[in-house]
Simulated scan of single mutants.
Amino acid sequence: MKKILLAALVSLPVTAFAAANNVGSCGLGSKVFEGQNGIAPQVLAVTTNGTFGNQTFGITSGTLGCTQDGVVSSNWKTALFIDGNKAQLARDAASGQGETLDALAALLKVDAADKAAFVSLTKARHAEIFASVESADSIAARLKAALQSDARLAKYAEAV
């Protein structure tokens, strides 16, 4: 019994850390449960990665959605920003100008040379991106898809 408790305590911090940001993580678990929301898919993805040890392999080999660029990224700032500014961001994107749209461009690190194209894209695809302002996750997913569909702006999609 003591061994089981010790194993649980040792693995808890790793599991808790991985579950906190499963959306942006890599490994077989993140691929199998990709697009699913909630605690259960995150825990299952982390468990899959931990059980098979594939996340380490993915990082060292550059497979399973992992990169070898040495950059640890998190999209939580973008998600938090969208969540706190959904309505105003939708209005700014519809008009093609405004503080929240400028702040989003800055948060995504849109180059000055690409900012006009970014603003144009969000205005032109406003109805698609902001189909519902109830969920920041859905807005972020549709914004990411819109950016990915534009060759010039696709490089900013990873920050969403």
Rank of each mutant, 00 (worst) to 15 (best):
L108F: 15
C66N: 02
L12R: 03
L89Q: 09
A105S: 10
K3C: 09
V133G: 02
L89C: 02
K155M: 13
A87I: 13
D114L: 08
D92M: 07
N37L: 06
L143A: 12
N21V: 12
G50W: 01
I59D: 00
T67M: 03
D92G: 11
I4F: 14
I82F: 08
K31S: 04
F81E: 00
C26Y: 12
F130C: 03
T122V: 15
D69A: 03
K123N: 03
P13K: 13
S149T: 08
G50A: 06
D111I: 01
V133M: 06
S135I: 04
P13V: 07
N54E: 02
V10T: 09
K86V: 10
Q36C: 04
A94F: 09
A117I: 09
A7Y: 08
V46W: 04
V43W: 10
E158Q: 14
I82D: 00
L5M: 13
D150E: 14
F17M: 13
V43L: 15
A127F: 08
V72F: 04
N54K: 03
I82H: 10
S135P: 07
F57W: 14
G58M: 09
G58D: 06
T15Q: 07
L80D: 14
A45H: 05
P13M: 11
Y156H: 06
Q36L: 15
R152H: 06
R91F: 06
E128T: 11
N37V: 11
A103D: 13
S30M: 11
A18W: 07
A16D: 03
F81K: 00
E134P: 03
K86F: 09
D111W: 01
D114Q: 02
T63R: 04
A146D: 01
Q148G: 06
Q97N: 10
S132H: 05
G53C: 03
S135G: 01
A154N: 10
A90S: 15
T15E: 04
A117D: 02
P13C: 05
H126G: 07
G29Q: 03
E128Y: 05
T100H: 08
A145G: 05
A124R: 14
G50N: 13
K77T: 14
A45C: 06
K77M: 12
L64Q: 10
G70K: 00
S95K: 15
W76V: 11
L89F: 06
G98K: 07
